[in-house]
Design a protein around this nucleic acid. Sequence first.
DNA 1: ATAGGGTTAG
Length: 520
Amino acid sequence: MAATAPAALQLLCRRPSLSAAQLRQVHAQLLTSSSLSLLLADRFLPNQLLRSLLPAHPLRVLRLFPRLRRILPGFRPNNYTFSFLLKSAADSSSSQGSDARLVASLHALAVVLAWDAHDYVANGLIHAYASHGLLPSARRLFDGAVTSRAADVCSWTSLLTAYARAGQVDEARALFDGMPRRNDVSWSAMLSAYVAAGGFADAVRLFEDMLRSGVRPNRAAVVGVLTACGALGALEQGRWVHAMVAAGARRSSRNDDGMIAIDGVVMTALVDTYAKCGSLDAARQVFAGATPEQRDVFAYTAMISGLSDHGRCLEAIDLFARMQAEGVRPNEVTFICVLTACGRAGLVGRAREVFRSMAAAHGVRPGVEHYGCLVDALGRAGLVAEALGVVRSMPMRPDSYVLGALLNACAARGDVEVGKQVVGWLAEQGLDHSGVHVQLSNMYAAWSEWGEVARVRRNMEERNVAKVPGCSMVEVDGVACEFVAGDRSHPRMPEIMSAVRDLHAHLRHRFDDIILVGVS
DNA sequence: ATAGGGTTAG
């Protein structure tokens, strides 16, 4: 019996992702009284046990720890023990919701056992606090660690990421600039911070700085800069990054000198970037070149979304079918894309069908976004009454997107009665920006009910509805041009209006399977 | 035996 403990331990260490049932069995073996002496004999064994559980079962590590202390009086947690525990605590923040007290109690325990002075433990605590978003605690420990020169590059990066997640990009950048040492992860963390904050041009600049400083970009940096290129519509930049990654992948397959491979995540980012930059063919090519393993739900969803955005709604719906035939299970985002494609293609029946199948066949409960897509699809097909019925039967409160879709449908059908009701609901929730009222007033105007038009305008003034004018920006030859709704002050306005008319005609001609709402 | 960054959305 005693001999089973090391065997079980070996099993644990080699196969860290055992099933729950297998783990219970191995633990039962390890914790028998005859094995306890073995565990006690080697002070590393309890740590091994914890470590073996970490990748797949972070919370189990936290539960097992007090039990080990109870049944093994000789067990002295050391710096490794704490680094495992803190890693568990940090990982549990994403999967199980934030539990601040968990980190605080580990901190307290580390102090009691005098392990908090150990560099690894101190850095682990900073990371655990930071990943729970507990910035003041993380910062206090971090400042102490910087003073005592204990703070390592991981702590700097963890804190940088925590500031970025809290929306403080400038603070993140200040940390980045202050780092005594940076590696690829520090660069990619800063790059992702910019992307998350919408600073796409800053992200692209940072990527170029990264290359100039001789740091080899990793997957995260490549994915981040591709996301930025997609958002900017920077097709040339995106192509350049693609070529760089492809060249590096070819080189490293020969002599393994370490450029990143185009794995599934990078491939998905490329599909998305090309599609967002208007190059559907390139997106298709990348997708077609992917291996079956790389074509996961993310890849399929990106491709479906790209097809739908380019007006290839029927192809998008076909790809959804092919995805299921390949055994890839759609998730909630996939359904948003597919429902959107159905709506744009005018396939209301298919939209209803897909919506019904979500919970029934795929175990995905429709969220408010899915109701929004369904209402939009019904509304584009002119089925205002059915759309209204869906809104009334929703198990959750309709948001501005749902009500906006319904209002669009009312406007398109000239249904002033329902439209008035929808504007009332929007007003109740404080979601009635000026455009909503303008839409209602336009509906009355279409029926020549000028008294009602005036009443809506008065109501807007009385209620002091905030005017948030629509606005867009484009960069031409390095000069930024801003356009605000109703503003005709640009010196080349006649040319611009003529280009807009051409574009509109082109859209109608090319995407005639799209139902355009609100464009006349 | 040790910690940090990443993909799809109306």
